[in-house]
């Protein structure tokens, strides 16, 4: 067993068998921004065997206050190249697949080949809707997080066991052109929760955030856990039992 993992394999919840399980896991990280930057590093460090990172953007100076996987040397280059370079430097024993594309309903099914968990690193409602519906179609857990300002929220949506993202968050995006502020630690907190949830879901340990959503207000450091339940009128998961309607 690789010495790099010894501080986690000595945990009885993980052990050598758990590490082996992580080595055979495949995870998709949808976006390498504030959230994906941190989940990618933690999941790479933990020894997830195959991490697919997907992002269409190039690195801009305004990304660097929070997207800590990247560095100034990569300005102007595709974020997935910058992120993959850092992940491989951190852990050369894992496989990283960078995919430079915008996630859409047309390409998500192909992107999920070999993937068992979808980690949300997106920054808009539309992409999350695509990820949520793919999660439902393929029966894959969708580890959601969202951030704004000093705040963060996180939940694990698991088809067949929990409400889905669209049971809870309805409606579209904010008007185009509106840029919201964010501090790096808000994204870092949310992404750390996501990495923890991903490891738990792969290993089948602990109590994932199923039908619960953690909401963190960073300014007054108030942490609240909301109990969720499926919406029978949900336009996404409410259609699962109807084979005539494609999600």
């Amino acid at each position: 067993m690789d010495e790099r993992y010894v501080r986690q394999t000595i945990l009885p919840e993980i052990g050598p068998q758990g590490q082996e399980r992580l080595a055979h896991a495949g995870v998709l990280i949808a976006g390498t921004g504030g959230l994906g930057s941190v989940t990618a590093l933690y999941l790479a460090a933990a020894g997830i065997g195959h991490i697919k990172i997907v992002d269409h953007d190039s690195l801009e100076p305004s990304n660097l206050n929070r997207q800590i996987i990247h560095s100034e040397a990569f300005l102007g280059q595709p974020k997935v190249i910058s992120a993959a370079d850092r992940m491989k430097a951190l852990n050369p024993t894992i496989r990283v697949t960078p995919v430079r594309t915008r996630i859409t309903s047309a390409n998500i099914d192909a992107l999920l080949d070999g993937v068992e968990i979808i980690v949300d690193g997106s920054d808009n409602y539309e992409t999350r809707q695509v990820l949520n519906r793919a999660s439902l179609r393929h029966g894959l857990p969708f580890v959601y997080a969202g951030v704004r300002g000093f705040d963060a929220m996180i939940s694990s949506f698991v088809p067949g066991r929990t409400a889905c993202f669209e049971c809870i968050v309805t409606g579209g995006d904010a008007p185009v052109g509106r840029v919201s502020g964010i501090v790096g630690p808000a994204a870092g907190m949310a992404a750390s929760f996501q990495a923890m949830e991903t490891l738990k879901l792969i290993l089948g340990i602990g109590k994932p955030l199923e039908n619960r959503m953690v909401c963190i207000s960073g300014l007054d450091m108030r942490i609240h856990c909301v109990n969720l339940n499926s919406n029978p009128q949900c336009k996404a998961c409410g259609q699962i039992s109807n084979p005539d309607k494609r999600l």
Partner: peptide
Amino acid sequence: IEFINPNLGG
């Protein structure tokens, strides 16, 4: 009662 504004940034 809690009013929670979903965060959609990333």
